[in-house]
């Protein structure tokens, strides 16, 4: 694999700035850089490619695709909230066949690393999606969005129950290429996120994406009705960042070896650095793209700067660094094995 080395932003090469090795991996999924887009916030990469070179990112996580075309929900589909927003899109999309034919083909031709996010309304749909993706070129990994209602079980969200979460992951694992990296994307709306993480890892997930949006609601005081046509919606943006950092931390504690793709309200390289220190090996940028369409690449450069400023020459040395025991300090970073218990 080629290793991308970034000069921290704002310093010219002549200043002999410490170059940071930004390459990382999520299990067998090797990435030259650690920042990805978050599903549903970058469509299939084409629009953002107008603002920056998407192949410079770690990867593009595409909008969750379902088996069939979906119209999504009625409007209004969004409401702005303090430092965030609510959305209730309802997984509008073209369906897997058209997605493979148009979006995936474009991404492959463009040379982007693509993580395909899939969503289903029952376990069988997830199996069929995995089958459809098997042997399709240009897929670096699959992210399984399990924050969907299970129509066969009273609409309960898969991600909220260890058994239903693991049955989805098991199905995707069974029907996917055995070497395909599979990330299970977890919802924070659970009592014990570590328990869900354990169950999806046992079911064959090679990594965890965390977090999806958390359920919220806004009432429009003019109409005196819910602001969203879907009544409730997913809260995202900087408002949820501390919840997301907590989720990464708890999963890292419970599962020292499972790779984590962290996300939730990342706005700056410093925010991304928090996720890395808490245990994420890579991060996704979502809602902030709406504010700053070039945020993913900006954040990637800012993260390199953060790492350099803190004395890290490799991103991988910083992963989980906040979990180190009290007597390990940064000056030893090259010598010590970071202990994670």
């Amino acid at each position: 694999m080629t290793r991308a080395v970034f000069s921290p932003a704002g310093q010219s090469a002549a200043e002999s700035s410490p170059e940071v090795d930004m390459s990382t991996s999520l299990g067998s999924l090797e990435l030259p850089a650690p920042v990805l887009t978050a599903s549903g916030c970058a469509a299939a990469g084409r629009e953002l490619d107008q603002f920056f070179d998407i192949t410079e990112l770690g990867g593009i996580v595409t909008k969750s695709v379902m088996l069939q075309p979906r119209s999504g929900r009625a409007t209004p589909r969004m409401a702005e909230t303090p430092s965030g927003m609510l959305n209730s899109i309802g997984l509008q999309g073209p369906g897997i066949d058209q997605f493979i034919e148009k979006d995936l083909a474009w991404l492959e031709q463009r040379g982007a690393r693509t993580i395909v996010s899939i969503a289903g309304s029952n376990v069988d749909e997830y199996s069929k999606l995995a089958q459809k993706l098997r042997n399709v070129p240009g897929i670096a990994g699959i992210e399984v969005n399990i924050s969907c209602p299970n129509v066969e079980n009273r609409g309960l969200v898969f991600a909220c129950h260890p058994d239903s979460a693991s049955s989805v992951i098991q199905a995707v694992r069974r029907f996917s290429d055995p070497k395909m990296p599979i990330l299970a994307k977890l919802s924070p709306d659970v009592t014990d996120i570590a328990e869900i993480a354990h169950s999806v890892v046992r079911a064959g997930a090679t990594g965890i994406s965390v977090m999806n949006t958390t359920l919220g609601m806004v009432i429009n005081t003019d109409t005196m009705r819910p602001a969203l046509a879907g009544v409730t919606g997913g809260l995202s943006g900087p408002a949820i960042r501390p919840i997301a950092v907590r989720c990464v931390w708890q999963i890292r504690k419970a599962l020292p070896d499972i790779p984590i793709l962290g996300m939730g309200g990342i706005r700056t390289g410093q925010d991304a650095f928090q996720f890395i220190l808490a245990g994420a090996s890579a991060v996704s940028v979502g809602t902030v793209v709406f504010n700053d369409p070039s945020a993913p690449i900006r954040i990637q450069h800012e993260l390199a700067q953060q790492l350099a400023d803190h004395g890290f020459s490799r991103l991988s040395d910083a992963v989980s660094y906040a979990h180190r025991s009290a007597d390990v300090e940064i000056l030893d970073v090259d010598e010590v094995e970071i202990e994670v218990e």
Binding site: A43, G72, P76, M78
Partner: peptide, 16 residues
């Protein structure tokens, strides 16, 4: 004039 979160085509909030 629809409510838009991104304005650049990536979020699907502005549909009709």
């Amino acid at each position: 004039e629809e409510s838009m979160a991104c304005g650049i085509g990536v979020c699907m909030t502005c549909v009709l």
